[in-house]
Every structure is written in C-alpha cells, then in structure tokens.
Amino acid sequence: MRADALRRRDALIDAAIELFRTQGPEVTLDRVAERAGVGIATLYRNFADKDALAIACTERMGLAFLERQQDINHRLEDADAAAAQALVHDYAQALLDIGAATLVPVFGLFRF
C-alpha cells in the first residue's frame, strides 16, 4: 500500500475510534470520513462497510492493548509492592486512554 493511502487508512481508523468512543456505535460512515478529512469513496475503498471498519478499529485497539500488556508484564517482574501497585494503576489508566471500554459497544456492530 502506498504511503499516502496508508496515511488515509490510518486516519479513518483513528477517526472511527474517536467517534465510537465519543458517540457510540451509531456514528455514520459519512461522519467518520468527514472527521478523517477524506471523501466517503476513500472510506469505501478501504472498508467495505461499517463492520469492516469496526474490525479494523478493534484490531488496532487490540494491538495497543497487547503492547501495554507486554510492557507491564516485563516491568512487573522486577517491581517491589509499591512499584507494582503504581504500575497496575498506570496500566488501568492506559487501558482507558486507548479506549478499551469502547470495544464493548462496538462489538454490537458485528453480525454473527
């Protein structure tokens, strides 16, 4: 994928995550495209539908979660009790920062 196309795809995912976080799963694809600064045709070139976009958002957030999990596991190995407590607190805040709570209503978008 070309660098400019990848930037637009990333912008769409970033916009969708933010809008899902602030407006819930009812957000429209037109609104996502607008927030990302691209046309609706660009959105559809990257994602067939809202389900595909939601899956991409979930993948991005899942990877961020795994990176945080690996980091805290590594750091907890050498931490004393006070440091461990601070790490767990920071980890919980990081989960909020990446929007982990956003995943729950977004799963409702999927048609199983």
Score class of each variant (00 low, 15 high):
M1W: 07
R2Q: 12
R2E: 13
A3M: 05
D4T: 10
A5R: 14
L6N: 04
L6D: 03
R7Q: 10
R8K: 12
R8N: 04
R9D: 05
R9Y: 11
R9H: 14
D10E: 12
L12M: 05
L12E: 00
I13H: 00
D14L: 06
A15W: 02
I17S: 01
I17D: 00
E18L: 05
E18G: 01
L19C: 06
T22C: 04
T22R: 11
G24A: 09
E26C: 03
V27T: 09
V27R: 01
T28I: 00
T28S: 15
D30T: 06
D30F: 04
R31F: 01
R31G: 00
A33N: 01
E34Q: 15
R35H: 09
R35F: 04
R35I: 05
V38G: 02
V38S: 02
G39C: 04
I40A: 11
T42S: 13
F47P: 00
A48T: 11
A48L: 10
A48G: 14
D49K: 11
K50F: 14
K50R: 15
K50Q: 14
D51W: 07
D51V: 15
A52Y: 07
A52E: 14
L53G: 03
A54L: 03
I55V: 06
I55S: 01
C57D: 01
C57W: 00
T58G: 05
T58C: 11
E59M: 11
E59S: 07
E59H: 08
E59R: 10
R60Q: 11
R60V: 05
M61H: 03
L63P: 00
L63E: 12
L66N: 04
E67F: 13
E67Q: 14
Q69Y: 15
Q70W: 08
Q70A: 10
D71I: 04
I72S: 04
R75G: 01
R75S: 09
L76I: 09
L76Y: 09
E77T: 12
E77Y: 13
A79F: 08
D80T: 02
A81Q: 05
A82T: 04
A82W: 01
A82I: 03
A83D: 03
A84I: 00
Q85S: 11
L87M: 11
V88S: 06
H89E: 08
D90R: 10
Y91G: 01
Y91F: 14
A92Q: 11
A92M: 09
A94W: 02
L96D: 05
L96E: 08
L96K: 08
L96M: 07
L96P: 00
I98L: 09
A100C: 05
A101K: 05
A101G: 08
A101R: 05
L103I: 15
L103C: 13
P105N: 14
F107Y: 15
L109Q: 07
F112R: 08
